[in-house]
Simulated scan of single mutants.
Amino acid sequence: MRDWNAGQYLKFEDERTRPAIDLLARVPLTDPKRCIDLGCGPGNSTELLARRYPNAEIIGLDSSDAMLEKARQRLPHLAFEKGDISAWAPSAPFDLIFANAALQWVPEHAALLPRLVAALNPGGCLAVQVPDNFNEPSHVLMRDVAARGPWAQRLGGAVTAREKIGSFGDYYARLKGAGCSVGLWRTTYVHCLDDADAIVEWVKGTGLRPFLDPLDEAEQATFLALYRSEIAHAYPTQFDGKVLLPFPRLFLVARRS
């Protein structure tokens, strides 16, 4: 995929940051020495870590130059590194590995999670939140529009760009097997947005990227027009003109023995 558009992502910064706040609130650590924010994006989640743990060494890691530029502007006193989570191999362990809305882009969770746990100090925590909206209309309709247009063959890989999110039992087994105590929960956020166009703008910054990136400008406009029409039917206007976007997310906090 092309590099991320940090400005597009930040159009809904408050809504995107709410799950990170909820995730961090469940982390039991009081004084971690080393923390890393995997897939730190523009630094909104990293800022939360810095506020809660002002005495910790905090690092942000992301594969996007555009996101890292925004993060460094936002938090010039912190260290940010470019890197791929799937290949991340730290030279020293961490007390907290935080990954908010990032691991859905990383394949093979069955192998990934034990590897992340192995990068923790004893007593350290792995805290993860991933969107669990693959079967929500917002994402089902992406795949439907992709499958029935002239771009169908080119967009075949877009469906598998995100890792399939497993069940509670899947994650419990992987993390218990790695020697952790495990907390798991699922929250559906209901975002009140201006209209169907706002839903399209939201997912343009994330889930739509694998579908739009292979298309030229004219094809993107056609795809978005078809998708927007479907979204307007799937998310009806409320009495006040707004639309409601339910957004389920899966959370886990695992503490290494």
Rank of each mutant, 00 (worst) to 15 (best):
Y53I: 05
Y53C: 04
Y53M: 10
P54C: 00
E57G: 03
I58F: 00
I59Q: 07
G60W: 04
D62I: 03
S63F: 11
S64W: 10
D65M: 09
L68V: 01
L68Y: 04
E69Q: 14
E69I: 07
L75S: 03
L75T: 01
P76D: 11
A79H: 15
F80T: 07
D84F: 04
I85Q: 09
S86P: 01
W88Q: 05
W88F: 15
A89F: 08
A92P: 01
P93K: 09
P93D: 09
P93S: 07
F94N: 08
D95N: 11
D95R: 00
D95S: 02
L96V: 05
L96R: 01
L96I: 12
I97C: 10
F98M: 08
A99R: 07
A102D: 06
A102M: 06
W105V: 04
W105I: 05
V106L: 04
V106C: 03
P107T: 10
P107I: 11
A111S: 14
L112Q: 04
L112E: 03
P114Y: 08
P114W: 08
R115K: 15
L116M: 14
V117T: 02
A118I: 00
A119M: 12
L120I: 01
N121G: 01
P122K: 12
P122V: 07
C125N: 10
Q129P: 00
V130F: 03
V130P: 00
D132V: 00
F134I: 11
N135W: 13
N135G: 08
N135L: 12
E136K: 08
P137T: 02
H139D: 15
H139N: 15
V140I: 15
L141F: 11
L141H: 12
M142E: 02
V145A: 02
A146Y: 07
G149E: 10
G149P: 01
Q153R: 13
Q153G: 02
L155P: 01
G156Y: 07
G157F: 02
V159S: 06
V159K: 14
V159A: 13
T160D: 14
T160E: 14
T160Y: 11
A161H: 13
R162Q: 12
R162V: 04
K164Q: 15
I165V: 13
F168G: 08
D170L: 02
Y172R: 15
A173Q: 14
A173E: 14
R174M: 14
